[in-house]
Design a protein around this nucleic acid. Structure first.
Lengths: 344, 344
DNA sequence: CTGAAAGCGCTTACAG
DNA sequence: CTGAAAGCGCTTACAG
């Protein structure tokens, strides 16, 4: 990085001051058009590269945002979060920012060890991808560094977050199932594990309520222990006709389980997921699911952190972004008759 | 970031110079032990955070490494590269470096547009994850910024790279198949697509040669077109008894294909993969495959870039890291007799 | 339109 | 052991 061409070099070469070069190169006013062009010409001729560190130094801004993924989310849904990170980077660039991805180890999370980037002033703010403990969040909040939670929220602390509309998405896809004539619909997921799963569950429940279908205990099927490790799915004695799964991977597992017992999907059972991740595509049949709108969510999260860097007092609260249902092959198409009877 | 506690603040508070504070906080000599402790005490009391930007400015080093993933590798093997990135970050930290992940769009790759981090001096070097065009590599080389290629190499330009020992890994796993009594062994992969695939193919071939098994044209089965898009796998008229696939995803596809035709794996056919990625686990049966040693590879790549930052003249050439065979359920265990006859 | 001065927060090299 | 001076490469605010 050293022994590079600097603004001063350009200035010396044509006998102007570095202030003028700075103005010319940053397209600021205060330089004649002629001189600006000349300076820009010399710059590219000399292979000048801007020193963002100097700018950072002057402005007291790192122009980096830390993107933090808690370790325990990594195994599960890697590709999901990498896609998110990519979208984030894309939007960050529009603000002349870069992303520094860090995984937060369970150890550091538990011991409330903040990311190194914080202690070194390497970043101006954080986007946190995947639920972390409230205590950790609170420590971060005390530091008064801008933080946006992406894809999760928590009620126990006041943070700005951008989340997918889990409730509404699950409500809609459950409605879809009802429209196809299903009345015995199970929910698969540990409804205590994350607030996302909980909200999805509630969306499912709302759909049942609206259609006067009673909620049955045995139709709430657990998928993982309290640490998030998947457990073998225990199907109830009397089977439902449809499974609403809290995520695609679980839907995939459910389908595998059903098929291993000789059942067919979607002929015998309809199964839907959530996330539209790789499991929705490797599943056979491919899953009808809810697609999280990563692009929109990332765009919002980036906008919010960057705004908060400029104005730390700004708050956004809980921002919901709607997903879309992706129709594939894991739901049996109903016949006309059922549709009609359902509509009455 | 501004209105932070600085070294000068600490210095003023106890009436010493900021030089002394700098020495104390960096554990450099030239401060009495007593004063050092006092300074460190005040620092933590005041919540001092080091300003890495100032250090960067002074030293002319960004303390960031750009990690570049070409866009066209993203879809295929996201999680594979995210895991790599994580390992890289881990090792980077030991050198007090951070990683800035960037995906290189096909457009930018084609038009030889270097990453923004380069033009802004945001990084001291690059690790490139996944094969990119030689032309692009050459442009980067001209800039004399340290570059390490990870997980791929090219013969057409002189670059330092850390790659898995594709040749040896495939050689070993093919040997394993031969030991299980297989003689008709097919290779599945486009042997012109990447040098990795080519090397894996050659390892397979070497094993055949060593065992005096002749290479048959119809046993080299294509899996993707020249742009990398998977094509439907055409099984040969006379089937082999084992398939050596260039990667797990393709092995997964091969198994699916065989099963759809009523064949059983491993009873009727043995199938092996390479990479030990998610496909090796979602496959049923799970795959016997070669595990890339990401940790070792990342460690080496990081060490090399950082060394090159210090000494740009250093070169490493092509560094091979050996993988390990992971034994799972996609290969039929041979009976004792075959083993014995094979050993003679 | 152009530029001299000051400063961002640290570190290095040197003097005491 | 301690510190004054200079400088990293820019930008801002101000003077001309």
């Amino acid at each position: 990085m050293r022994n590079n061409v600097t603004m001063r070099d350009i200035a010396n070469k044509i006998g102007v001051s570095s202030v003028t070069v700075s103005k010319a190169l940053n397209d600021k006013e205060g330089v004649s058009e002629e001189l600006r062009l000349k300076i820009q010409g010399i710059a590219s001729e000399l292979g000048y590269r801007f020193n963002s560190t100097a700018k950072s130094m002057k402005e007291g801004l790192a122009y980096n945002i830390g993107v933090i993924i808690p370790e325990h989310f990594i195994g599960e849904t890697q590709s999901f979060y990498l896609s998110f990170y990519q979208e984030i980077t894309k939007h960050l660039q529009r603000y002349n920012y870069y992303g520094i991805l860090q995984t937060l180890s369970s150890h550091d999370e538990k011991n409330l060890v903040l990311p190194g980037t914080y202690y070194e002033n390497k970043v101006d703010g954080f986007i946190i991808l995947g639920q972390i403990g409230n205590e950790y969040l609170n420590v971060l909040k005390e530091k008064e560094i801008p933080v946006i939670c992406l894809d999760f929220y928590t009620d126990q602390t006041e943070v700005d977050c951008v989340i997918t509309d889990n409730f509404y998405g699950m409500y809609e896809i459950t409605n879809h199932l009802v429209k196809q004539g299903h009345k015995d619909i199970a929910f698969v997921g540990n409804i205590y594990f994350t607030s996302s799963i909980q909200d999805r569950y509630l969306g499912y429940y709302k759909s049942l309520l609206e259609h006067r279908i009673s909620l049955k205990d045995q139709f709430i099927i657990n998928d993982r222990d309290d640490k998030g490790a998947f457990v073998d799915i225990e199907l109830p004695d009397t089977l439902p006709t449809a499974f609403v799964c809290n995520c695609d991977q679980v839907a995939y597992n459910v389908i595998t389980k059903l098929q291993s017992q000789g059942h067919r999907v979607p002929e015998d059972f309809s199964v839907v997921g959530f996330d539209n991740d790789i499991y929705s595509r490797i599943s056979s049949p491919q899953l009808t699911t809810v697609q999280v709108d990563m692009a929109e969510m990332s765009k919002a999260a980036v906008k919010f952190v960057v705004e908060k860097v400029k104005n730390p007092l700004k708050t956004y609260g809980r921002v919901l972004v709607r997903g879309n249902i992706i129709h594939r092959d894991s739901v049996k198409k109903n016949d006309q008759k059922q549709l009609v009877s359902d509509k009455t």
